[in-house]
Design a protein around this nucleic acid. Structure first.
Lengths: 201, 201
DNA sequence: ACAGAACTACCTATTTTTAGGTATATTTAA
DNA sequence: TTAAATATACCTAAAAATAGGTAGTTCTGT
């Protein structure tokens, strides 16, 4: 049976490559493509492809957000996420948001075609990762996330306090809690650990 | 005429895509592929393809280093760099090291095929960028690069001094110079600016 | 041989961050 | 309606980073 697939990736060359790769398979037709999340979302809603391949990291709107929006709007297109990040949190989020699969970009075409086949048969295909003891959910409060966001932009405690209309002392406490939650002893280390945990910083 | 091409990229899916894309062109045959710089270098020397497509960012040995090694060893394969980074420094370096082309991954297949054609005819194809006043060459000494590398891993001045077998005072000076060169006032800001300048941090 | 660059090292001084503590008002959830 | 979580704010104290200075040695290229 003919399968229609939509491709969203921020690199045109990757899109072109995937198109060729999928076209090769014979039973697949490419219903559309997009180089950012916003266009992807609009087009997928409009074209209703059987499957959408969504790059996780995209401009305007990342793949997970597109996935959420599509689910929220009742779109029936089955989404397979493509990512460079072998990260538990991303994969869990993708699954939670209703993705049918999650593949790393370092898989080969065989794995991709198998995943598409599986998903079309109603199954799922999530990249299994070596899930060690760590990655125990680290949780941040909304305010802590505000602080993390500004920290990641290179702001000092003083600047963050001004931007969030609160005192330096308060921001100090938030920073302390954030460090304690991650086990980091300085800001650079903190940002590294946050990235490892899958946060967009 | 038949053109043999080697592909090096750290994502198998990108390789597979490019293979399909190039195979489509008819007159191109893929002589080999690699998912890291070291393997790429060995294979290119062994297989002597007409053209090598080298991803700039690769594990083990980045594309620019592979390019340098190949030139140094007198390899005649014409190298076209593929990159996600529209960065003056990378492009200049690539040209200086003897690359025949530099393309962003957001170009389409038409541009890629044209570039290959141009290069095969003895020409070059460098992605022209909007070169604003900024990007005035920021240069780091080898030792400064050592320090930057360890800083980016979250190490403190103290730790860096130990790792580089020198005194804290010396590392302080290096850090000061690095900040002065980039205009950053703290480490997080520094790393952000370095990334903007195209450094692998 | 000399100039310049790079690496080293120390100085002072201020600012910022890190690392503990306590405490209170407000909101959230059981 | 308690209990817990969140955001707020202040305290002390030590460690680290930032920002300026001078200066000697070594290596490299002219």
């Amino acid at each position: 049976m003919e399968v229609s697939i939509f491709i969203a990736d921020d690199h045109q060359l990757v899109i072109d490559g995937l198109k060729m790769l999928l076209a090769q398979a014979g039973h697949i037709n490419i219903s559309g493509e997009a180089i950012n999340g916003l266009i992807a979302e609009q087009q997928i809603i409009k074209l209703k492809p059987d499957i959408a391949l969504l790059d996780v990291r995209m401009p305007e709107k990342d793949g997970l957000k597109v996935l959420q929006s599509l689910q929220h709007k009742g779109c029936t297109t089955k989404c397979i996420m493509l990512s460079m990040h072998e990260d538990a949190r991303y994969i869990k989020d993708a699954e939670a948001f209703g993705a049918k699969g999650y593949l790393l970009k370092n898989v080969g075409k065989v794995v991709l075609l198998e995943a598409i086949s599986k998903v079309m048969k109603g199954g799922t295909c999530f990249h299994t990762i070596v899930q060690t003891e760590k990655n125990q959910t680290v949780f941040f409060t909304p305010r802590e996330k505000d602080v993390i966001g500004l920290l990641a932009k290179g702001h000092s405690t003083n600047e963050i306090a001004s931007l969030l209309f609160t005192s330096q002392e308060t921001i100090k406490v938030h920073r302390k809690h954030i460090r304690e939650k991650t086990g980091a002893t300085n800001s650079v280390e903190l940002l590294i650990k946050l990235k490892e945990l899958g946060f967009d910083v």
